[in-house]
Structures are given as structure tokens and as C-alpha cells.
Simulated scan of single mutants.
Amino acid sequence: MKRVINFSGGKTSALMTILLKPTDDDIVLFTDTGREHPLTYKFIDDFEKNEGIKVHRVGYEHKRSPGLTGFDAMTNWKTHLPNRMKRLCTTELKINVARRYLRPLIGMKFEQFIGFRFDEPNRVKNYKHTYKGVYTKFILFDQKVTKEMVNQFWLTKPYTLEIPSILGNCDLCFLKGKDNIIKIMAMYPELADKWIEDERRANVGRKKKDGTFFPDVSYEGLLKIAKSQTSLFDLDKALPAYNCSCTN
């Protein structure tokens, strides 16, 4: 059976990929939202170069958003923005993109591997996959691999992901929580621009200005708070407010 290895661009999924020793028949799949930190893309380049493993990189496109990809393409034409309760970004940018890419290549019967660790039992327990013929495996959980073990592994390598884990995945994802977003904006205010533009675009033509990622505050408002901070924060200790299961 064909194997699909879900590669998020982080250290955990990269370790899982190495342990699986993919062959040319396997597909190491990175579904790119276009909102990753620049150093995540550098890490993927370094991974391919050092490990000799090809990463299939795919992204979302839509005919109503010519010339745009990923998150930009989705928010350019969607009438509402994703939020914690309606995570259309996961569906559109991850799940559907992966299905469209894989179906003509290998069909919809395969083993898929997801990098949930032993110290993430709730992610394993709550994972839901309803596609008949797709069999999901969590080898890091099965092998009792923890975050500390992942970090120790990358100390042995000549390259690594050079950002705190809170900056992984979409850089200012609403699932990180408002407090963490403020902390990140305080250090990297330039990351806010594209998210603010999403909200401005979503509010065009609306009588009620409710096109925001959070119901009670805009990203522009969060940026103002971040700029008022008198001290910076230790992002290495920051943890997402909500569980992110943005897997394929």
C-alpha cells in the first residue's frame, strides 16, 4: 500500500519522516498555506538537501483569485473568515488540497502518517478521519517519542528549525490565542500586515464590520496592543491556547 507522510515543516514531522525512511514510492506531503514563517521554508529546503528526501509542496488555488495562492487566495474570495469554531482554512488549505493532489497520483487508498507525539495523547484521541480506504498511523505516539526527545534529536543535526515552536504553522493563527499573537506581534509587527488585510478585505461592503478572526477584536487592534508593550516576551515558553490539528 502507498504511504503518505504528512510533513508540516516542523521538527516533529521531520523526525517522523526520517524514521520512516521514505522510498521513491512514498509521498512526503507539505500543504503550504503561504502563512508560514520564512525560516520554516528554509528548514524544508535544508531538510531536502541534508536528508536527500523529496518533499511534495502543494498549495491552494482558486479561479476567483488569479495570481494568488494559499491563505491569500482563500480570503480573497470567501465571504467570511475562518475562526476557532469554523476552521474552513484547515478544510480548504490542508484536507481538500491534499485530496486533489493525491487522488490522480495514487487514488484514495493509502496509509498516512501524522506526527502526533506521545505527550500529545488528546490529539491522537480526538483525531477524526472519515475517508474510507485511508489508514492513519501515529508512529511517534506508538514509539513514545516526546517533545524533549525530538529536541534532543535535532541537536545532533547540522541544521534545525531556527524559530520557537509557537511560530510554527501559520505565523499568527487565531488558534495560538490573543495573548500569544500579541507577544509575537510585539517582536515581529510586520507579520500582522497580511492578517489585517484579510480582515479589511472581508469587511468590504458589509454594514456590520464583523469580518474578523476573533469576535471581539481585530488583528489591527491586537497590533495596537502589541505596540504598546514596554517589554518583549520569551516566545520559547509560549504554548498555543487551542489545539491545532491542521493535518491533511
Rank of each mutant, 00 (worst) to 15 (best):
M1D: 07
R3V: 04
N6R: 05
S8E: 08
L15K: 12
I18C: 02
P22F: 12
I27N: 02
V28Q: 03
F30A: 06
T31E: 12
E36F: 03
P38Q: 04
I44Q: 11
I44T: 07
E51K: 11
I53M: 07
R57K: 12
K63A: 15
R64C: 08
S65G: 15
S65D: 05
N76C: 03
W77D: 04
T79D: 12
L81S: 10
N83C: 04
C89S: 10
E92F: 14
K94W: 08
K94A: 07
I95A: 00
N96W: 13
I106W: 07
K109T: 14
F113R: 02
I114K: 01
V124L: 00
K125Y: 11
Y127N: 15
F138G: 04
Q152T: 04
T160L: 00
I163E: 05
P164H: 02
L167A: 09
L167Y: 04
D171Y: 09
L172C: 07
K176L: 03
G177E: 01
I181R: 00
I184N: 03
M185W: 09
M187R: 13
Y188C: 11
A192S: 15
E197Y: 11
K208S: 11
F214P: 03
V217R: 00
V217Y: 01
K224T: 02
I225A: 11
T230I: 10
S231W: 06
L235A: 08
A238S: 01
L239W: 06
L239I: 15
